[in-house]
Each structure stands twice: as C-alpha cells, then as structure tokens.
C-alpha cells in the first residue's frame, strides 16, 4: 500500500446489548462489528461486501459518525471525528457524506427535491437564497436531474430520480469521502447502470474517495479498486479487487463468489451452494466464525480465532488454511462435490 490513508480504522467494534432470550436470562451481546482494522487510501474505491448481518452497514454508519463505535479508533484526515465537539463534528461532516440504500425513504417525504438539496447548503451557510438556488440547479445538472423535477416531492419521482437527488445532496459540499451504502440495490437493472455510471463519473470528476457497501459482487467488481469481505462482523479478507474476484483466498469469499448466479451457461451445470446457513450473530461459532460451513475446518479453527495476516503482498486473509495453492484446489472440489 502506498500513500497516507485518507481514513483508517483501528480495531473498530460495535456491540449491541440485546434483551435476554427469556425473562431473567442473561443479557446477550450482538457483535455487529468485531475488531475491524482497515485503511482507505485517498481517491480509491473500497468495496465492502458480505451478506446480511455481516456488519457492513454498521461499519458504514460508524464511519459516517452516525453511531459511535463501542471500541476502537478512527482517523479521518488526521483526526478522530469521535473526539470532536458538536460544532467541530458538523464542520468535519463537510468532508464525508453518504448515499443511502433506499432512494425514496432517505428523502423527507414532505420536502420537494429542491428543498432537500438546498438543506445541506443552508446548514453550511452556502450563501444567499439565490446563490443556493443556483447551486441546487447546478447540482441537478451534474447528477442528470432535469430542472423541472426539482419541484416534485419524492413520491412523484422514480427510484432512479430519487437516488439522483440523494447523490446531489451528498456531493453538494464537495466532500472528499462518500460512503455509499447499497446505493443501487433497490433499483431496477436498467436504472442501476445509470446510477453506477453517475457515481463513477462524479468520483473521477471530484477526485472522491469512495467506500462502496454492497451485497452484489458484480457491482462491487465493477467499481472497486480494493475489496473487503466481511462475515458475521469480522473482516475475513481484504485485497485488490481483481485478485479477490479472480482468486479468492478465504473459503468464505470463494463460497460467496460461487453462489452468485451468473447469466452464463456454466451457471446451469454448477450448483455450488454453500453448506448450511448463516449462524445466529447472537451466538456465533467459536474461533473462526465460518468454520461451521467451511470445507477446510479443522480443530484449530474452533479453538483459535484466525487473525488477519498479509499474504501475497497487498492481500490479507483471516484464515488458518488459506496458504497453499493446493488447499485452493481442495476447496473448489469440496464446494462442487
């Protein structure tokens, strides 16, 4: 890795205390995010992938300072935003903005598109009402939203148009970092391509750093320079996206990629579904969380939590058995048996 990271997370964890399973039972802890350490380099796109409950959205919210981590530190542009006071945090928010999953629900249903985009400008005293209005229209052009749509309410806009409003709001202050939490997963296929193109264009125009959260591997493969794979709150593999998608090292990454239905003829023959289902995040397996579904699991996997370790230069994997290439072959056989 080269250059100073724009954002670094060190041992970030988030634990939610859940009510006891039965009256008088012990309080259960949900480890939504468990000791995640990673860096995001300036200008790069980091893809964050995993299945529901893997903690990717929680991590996104913590980066956005929408909830505090239970433990761990974060450095964004040289400081930890969690240590800032309210006023300083508000000022710091100029630099990191978010694009949300549900394009419709993330817009206030009672405000028109124009007011929604203008709100962020007003919050940061952008200028006179005329200046704000001019900037809103400029932003609308930038995100490909016709000006007449600005006077509509969210429910009068299509999903794609709503997402454009959401993106205009996020880039209004020219942030440095955009956290996009499943920005296209609620959209139709044809609209998905429009929004992906828009995000990619804006990124290169504005030199944005992008954290792109998604469960859709092909979308992440399209936008991300590096990919971080999460499973039950833990980071299991991180590395350059081309490496991970062509030769995933962690057994979970392999399972995940093999499970994606692809519109190619091979999809008809290969039924490579993973064994079992996601264990309850309230009661995850000991040691390696993936061991209950893993074809490579040994006793060591239940006894000892695998730490993230560097492998092949820029890649990092948290697996006891991810070294030898021979093992890789073994995994594939097991999956397809």
């Amino acid at each position: 890795m080269t250059g100073k990271p724009f954002l670094s997370l060190r041992g970030i964890s988030k634990t939610y205390a859940m009510g006891p399973a039965r009256l008088g039972g012990p309080v259960r802890n949900l480890h939504a995010v468990d000791d995640v350490t990673l860096d995001v380099l300036p200008g790069e796109t980091l893809g964050l992938v995993g299945e529901s409950g893997c903690g990717k959205s929680s991590l996104a919210r913590m980066i956005m300072q929408l909830e505090p981590p239970t433990s761990g530190t974060m450095v964004l542009k040289g400081r930890d935003p969690a240590e800032l006071g309210n006023a300083a945090l508000k000022e710091a928010r100029r630099d990191f903005q978010m694009v949300f999953q549900d394009p419709y629900a993330s817009l206030n249903p009672r405000m028109r598109a124009r007011a929604i985009i203008a709100e962020v400008l007003r919050n940061y005293r952008f200028g006179t009402p005329d200046q704000i209005n001019a900037r809103v229209e400029e932003l609308a052009r930038q995100v490909g939203l016709s000006a007449h749509l600005l006077d509509r309410f969210p429910h009068e806009l299509s999903g794609g148009q709503c997402q454009r409003v959401g993106i205009a709001r996020a880039i209004a202050l020219k942030p440095r970092l955009i956290v996009a939490d499943e920005p296209v997963s609620a959209l139709d296929v044809s609209i998905q391509a429009q929004i992906l193109n828009l995000i990619v264009e804006l990124q290169s125009e504005m030199g944005l750093t992008l954290v792109f959260v998604s469960h859709d591997m092909s979308v992440v493969a399209h936008v991300a320079d590096r990919v971080a794979v999460m499973y039950l709150g833990r980071l299991v593999e991180i590395g350059p996206s081309s490496d991970i998608f062509s030769r995933p090292l962690h057994p979970y990454s392999r399972t995940l990629l093999a499970a994606v239905p692809r519109p190619v003829p091979e999809a008809r023959q290969r039924h490579a579904s993973a064994r079992g289902e996601l264990p309850s995040p309230l009661n995850p397996p000991s040691g390696c969380h993936f061991r209950t579904r893993c074809p490579l699991a040994t006793e060591r996997c239940s006894a000892e939590r695998p730490q993230l370790r560097s492998i092949e230069g820029a890649r990092q994997v948290a697996c006891h058995h991810a070294d030898a290439d021979a093992v890789g072959v073994h995994v594939t056989e097991n999956l397809h048996a």
Binding site: D188, Q194, L196
Partner: peptide
Amino acid sequence: AGLLQSLPGYGSTLRSHLTEIAGSV
C-alpha cells in the same frame, strides 16, 4: 439487449461506462 448490456462485470472493465438504458419505465 439493453438488460444484458447494462449488467456490470461482463465485458466491462473497472469503472468503464456501462451501456445504460436511458430514461425510465
């Protein structure tokens, strides 16, 4: 054809322009 072409990851390279279907339903 439009549906097939708008899928990312098939014939597209990293962050290349996807052939989108313009407009909406």
